[in-house]
Structures are given as C-alpha cells and as structure tokens.
Design a protein around this nucleic acid. Structure first.
Length: 602
RNA sequence: GGUCCCGUAGCUCAGUUGGAUAGAGCAUCUGCCUUCUAAGCAGAGGGUCGCAGGUUCAAAUCCUGCCGGGAUCGCCA
C-alpha cells in the first residue's frame, strides 16, 4: 500500500523535474510517506516539500502545491491538501481501502509476511539457563522475548534457528553433582540432615537422587568423589534438561538446537582451542597480566600471567581471560568457541538474548564476533558504543537485552531464595496465571524497561491483562459470524459469499478506520522485525482490538452500524468481510507472540 | 571510580528511529446492558516529556554538560 503511493510521489517529482519545475539534479532521498498521527491530516502524509525546499531553493509550500496538482490526478487518491509548514496530506479513495480488504482475504495467513528477511539465516540464542534446576520467574522474560522475536523474524521472512546453550561445563554443575549425590545417599536410606551451605537444597533433586539410586544401586556409595563426579554430573544434567524443556513447553517455547558447552571439549576434540587458535592467527591472543579492577576490593585478587584475548582492540575496557588458574577454560573461552561454531555453521546474523545482569559482558562478546568475521564494533569519537551489534563483517551479531523482572508480592519487594523456600518457579507462575497472560505481559513492554511482576496481583487480577482484551476481539468476530449464520447460513467464515462481498457498502468512518489499521500491519511487522522489538506488535494488536470493540459498540447506539443487518444480506456480507480481515490480522499477530487466538471467551 | 541502561499524566508504560495540538491502561469523576458476549463502549479532569544549552524548516526523539534511579565491574555463569 505504502509502496504504491510512495512510488506515485516520486514519479510526480520526476515529472516535475523533467518539466523544469524543479531542478533536474535535485536529490530526492530522505522523503517519507507515512501515516500521520492525527487522522484529520489524511490517510497518508509526506514531508517531501519541506525536505526539498532547501536544496531546490524554493518555498516548501510552492513545491507542495506543484506536487498536489500532480497527485490529485491519481486514480487511488481522493484529495491532496497542503498543510502546516508544507505537509502534503493525501486522502485515499474508499475503493483503495476496499481493495485492501480483498487483498487480505486472498493473502490469508500470509498477509503481513513481508519478505524482509529474504530467507537470510538467523540464529537466535535465548534462555540458556544453567541446567541445575527448574526455571524460575526471572527466566520467563528472556525466554518469551527470544521466542517471540524468533517468531517475528520468521514471519518477516528470515530463516530462523532457535538455540539453547547449555552451560553444563562450569563449577556450578559440580555443585549440582554433589547435591544430587547427597540425595542419592538419602534415597538409599541415609539420614543426610540439613543440606550444607554451598549445595543446592531444592526438593526437585530428590527424584534425581532416587533415579540415580535405581540406576546404580549402592555401587557409588563408598567411592571417592573423583570416581563418581563426572558420572553423576552427566546423569543429573540428563535428568534436569527434560525438566527445563517441560517448563519451556508450558510457556509454548521451543528450541531447534540444544548446544552443550561441555561437548565443545569432549571426545578428543577441543573446539575451544581451535577457536583460540583462530584468534591467535589474527594476532589477538597473548600472555599477559591484567590490572586489578578499581572501585571495589577483592581479597582473592592474585596477579598472574594468563592467556588473554585482546578485546580492547574492539574498544572493550580490558582484555579478557581465557584460562582459569587451574588450567581450565573460562566461561568466556567456551562462549567464544560456541560463537565460532555458530559462525562456521554459516549463519549470517546471530542474535543473543541477554539479561541485564550480563550487560558488562557485551563488549567482549561483540569483540569476539567482530574478530572472527572481520567486522567492526562501531563506536563514536569518545569510544562510546553506538549499538550492541557488530557491523560490516562476513556475518554479524546483535545482542538484545531484557531487563530484570522485579518480583513483588502484594506491593512489597519479594526476595527469592532457594534456601528459604521462597523460590518462585516458572511453572508456578504459568499454573497460576496461565500461559497466554504471562507471555503477553512479558511482551507488553519494551524489553529494556524493567518489569515489575507482582505475583499476588497478577494472580488475582489476571483479567485486567490486556491479552484478554485482544483475544476478546478475536473471539467477538467469531461470535458475530456464529450469529450471522443463523440469519444468513451462507455467510460462514472464509466462504465465497464473504470473500466476494460487495465492499463498496463499507462507507462508515469507523469501518474505514478499521481498514486503515489493518493496512498498517505489514509495515509494522517490518519495522518491528528490523528493530527486533516484538513489543511493538503487542501494542499494535491492542490498538486494533480497541478499534474493533469501538466499532462493535457503535452498533449499540446506532443499530444501522451493527455488523449483522438481518434485512440486508449484502451489507452484512461486506461487514463480515471487514471484520474477518481484522480477525485474520489479530490471529497472525497473536501467533507471532505465541498467544492463542480463541473462537470464544467462555 | 569505570562502563551500560532508564527518567514522559497521581501510578505502570507507549511514542511508527526528526514531523503537525505528546498518547494508552490503571486510578478519580460522568454516562451506556429488554439491543450482534458490558472480559465492552462514549466522555471529563490530569503534562516545565528530569534540568540547561546546542544542531534545523521541525526535537520527547540527535549532540554536549549536569541532576536523579538502577545494573554491572579479573579466573562465577
């Protein structure tokens, strides 16, 4: 729709140039055709005249008037006016809008799929929680965000792979193994007393210990830790990952690939070493010392020479360690190798979803990817990071940060503690509140904004969640169809009678407004996908639902505006075609957000 | 102290990447259910867009400097 009118505007400019009304070499970039905020400014408006005024050395209004004359002749344009400092306000003919409804019907679920991504491969990594226990509320946001972003990019035409990086190699999984071993002894009848500090006390490890007992009997009991640690570690992770996957499934979240950190150095291969060697070949690895960090005391600081990655080459504030003092790899080293692997798998674009507590980790991650891809990390003159992404390389990475979820209970800040048993699991929340409300709530906010999550409030007042408002709009359309068919049996959803309705009957301002809103959908999808901001879609759906509810309600005061006109099948068909288009957009939008679009709210 | 985020209505937040008179929900107030689902609709009040400069036809949006809140700061993950 926009493309059509935009090209008409630039065609008009070219005509003016060739007629000598404008300088022939006038640059025409920076022109925009957009939907004005205020509907009294027409359906579309353009800033063309104001942008061109200076280079053309003409008054904006003079240019605007010339354009106005050209555009008024267009078949789709009803009128053009010049307003304010030189805005060109375009009002389209009703026929244009009617054609758009028909286009939505013929595109069906494909309406809004913009093809922006052109099939380009994207790898999006999200959740990546430690496999040491069930997911808690804090994990929800990144999980839902990543999942919805994946859907959005796929809808916009990218070839998306969703990935979970299992942190199964660090010290925390040893702690897990020891905790499970304790539960194993318990399962075999031993009184283990209180769980010692430093181990995971959660009840969820009991069945894991019991399973271990079933699998190995008493055979591990008397062995030293060195003999059972690796075995129990693997066993525990194999037990816990299904728990995590189940938690994710409860939120309708899935991944295509689960990538194990431990597997990087398993079975004779050492992908971490390979990645480090690749960096070494670029001269970015050296043995050296780091300065003690300022600002806070660290008793355990020990000055030593170590293997370092020159992330300062890419503007990071310090070089980063790759080996721990015990000779094992740091978490960062593993992550570098993991990203090297993703790049080798051929992805052109990587997306990482981080929590705000990992913000300090961003510069080194960007540095690593920029190093591998010969890309750059753009910074301004003062060395300030311009964006959380690399540019210009053979591939790039963008890091999306979701802010923390602050927990409250009845308005009071709520501290989660595994030990005190005040641990709120993801499953608790989903069971209490429901999958759709949780998802929508997490997405109905810009991801970088902190999110207050009052557990009690959300449970009690889940009906206030905007998700129901949007779903209700979808259900309402279904309901209108059910009622309409009692009078006009042929007007079923998707029927020929609806698809071929005489849309010229749609003349009410509210009806045209609804079409305007659904017309904005493809552009909104592109914008949200480009910015990687799924929340825009959530807000858009809310507005669209609002417009539908408003139109429905006008029928209360003005019966002739009701969708169903029992004595006028032609009008009813036209209006059903309209609201079916609205329903289609809501359905597509909700499916991108991973929220169900119900046929009924009862 | 360094780095990074955030300051928009009483509260929680949008603001189409620089557009016209800054929007929505909640809360407060006023109306609307014998009428296609009231999980809804219509309306009212409520603003120095943290402050001060700058850039230009145009700034909540970009730049600079302050002020306030938060996150984070060698080998944890």
């Amino acid at each position: 729709m926009f493309a059509e009118i935009e090209s008409r505007v630039s065609a008009a400019l070219e005509e003016l140039k060739s007629e000598g009304a404008l300088p022939p070499d006038l640059p025409t970039h920076g022109l925009e055709v957009e939907v004005p905020r205020d509907p009294t400014h027409g359906d579309l408006s353009s800033n063309a005249a104001m942008v061109l005024a200076k280079p053309a050395r003409m008054k904006p209004r003079d240019i605007a008037e010339k354009l106005q004359a050209k555009l008024s002749a267009d078949a789709n344009i009803a009128s053009v006016s010049v307003a304010g400092p030189g805005f060109l306000n375009i009002t389209l003919k009703p026929e244009f809008w009617h054609g758009l409804v028909r286009a939505i019907h013929s595109d069906g679920a494909g309406y809004g799929r913009t093809g922006l991504g052109k099939g380009q491969t994207v790898n999006i990594e999200y959740v990546s929680a430690n496999p040491t226990g069930p997911m808690h509320v804090g994990h929800c946001r990144g999980a839902v965000f990543g999942d919805a972003l994946g859907n959005l990019l796929a809808f916009a035409g990218f070839d998306v792979t969703r990935e979970y990086y299992i942190n199964d190699a660090g010290g925390q999984v040893d702690v897990l193994a020891r905790s499970v071993f304790l539960r194993y002894r318990e399962a075999l009848g031993e009184d283990i007393g209180e769980i010692p500090a430093g181990l995971y006390p959660g009840e969820y490890l009991k069945p894991v210990g019991e399973a271990l007992a079933r699998a190995h009997g008493r055979s591990l009991l008397d062995k030293p830790e060195a003999d059972w640690l690796a075995l129990v570690r693997t066993f525990a992770i194999d037990q816990i990952m299904p728990m995590i996957k189940e938690d994710l499934a409860a939120l309708n979240i899935r991944h295509d690939v689960f990538f194990s950190e431990a597997a990087l150095t398993k079975g004779g291969t050492d992908k971490v070493k390979a990645a480090i060697d690749a960096l070494r070949a670029k001269g970015l690895i050296y043995e050296g010392r780091l300065e003690k960090p300022k600002g806070h005391e660290d008793e355990e600081w020990e000055d030593r020479e170590q293997t370092l990655f020159k992330s300062t080459e890419f503007g990071d504030e310090a070089d980063r360690a790759l080996m721990k003092s015990d000779g094992s790899y740091t978490y960062f080293a593993g992550d570098v190798a993991y990203h090297y692997d993703k790049l080798q798998r051929g992805y052109k674009h990587l997306v990482n979803v981080f929590g705000a507590d990992h913000i300090g980790y961003i510069p080194r991650m960007l540095a690593a990817v920029a190093a591998f891809t010969d890309g750059t990390v753009e910074r301004d003159a003062k060395g300030k990071l311009k964006a959380w992404q690399t540019t210009g390389g053979s591939a790039d990475v963008a890091i999306r940060v979701v802010n923390l979820v602050k927990l409250f209970k009845n308005g009071e800040p709520y501290k989660m503690s595994k030990r005190a048993g005040t641990f709120v699991t993801l499953r608790d929340v989903v069971d209490e509140v429901g999958r759709d409300p949780v998802r929508f709530m997490m997405l109905y906010r810009k991801e970088l904004e902190p999110l207050d999550f009052d557990f009690a409030k959300v449970t009690e007042q889940s009906k206030d969640n905007p998700v129901f408002y949007v779903q209700y709009a979808h259900a309402r359309v279904a309901s209108v169809f059910r009622n309409a068919q009692e009078v006009f049996p042929e007007l079923s959803p998707g029927s020929e009678a609806v698809r071929n309705a005489d849309l010229s009957r749609l003349t009410d301002a509210g009806e045209i407004d609804l079409i305007r809103k659904v017309a904005a959908f493809p552009r909104l999808v592109s914008g949200a996908a480009r910015a990687e901001e799924p929340h825009r879609l959530a807000f858009y759906l809310y507005e669209l639902a609002s417009a539908l509810h408003a139109q429905w309600s006008r029928g209360n005061d003005s019966p002739h505006l009701r969708f169903i006109q029992a004595d006028d099948g032609v009008m009813t068909a036209a209006r059903l075609a309209l609201i079916a288009a609205v329903q289609q957009v809501i359905s597509s939008g909700l499916s991108v957000l991973g929220v169900e679009a119900p046929e009924s709210m009862r």
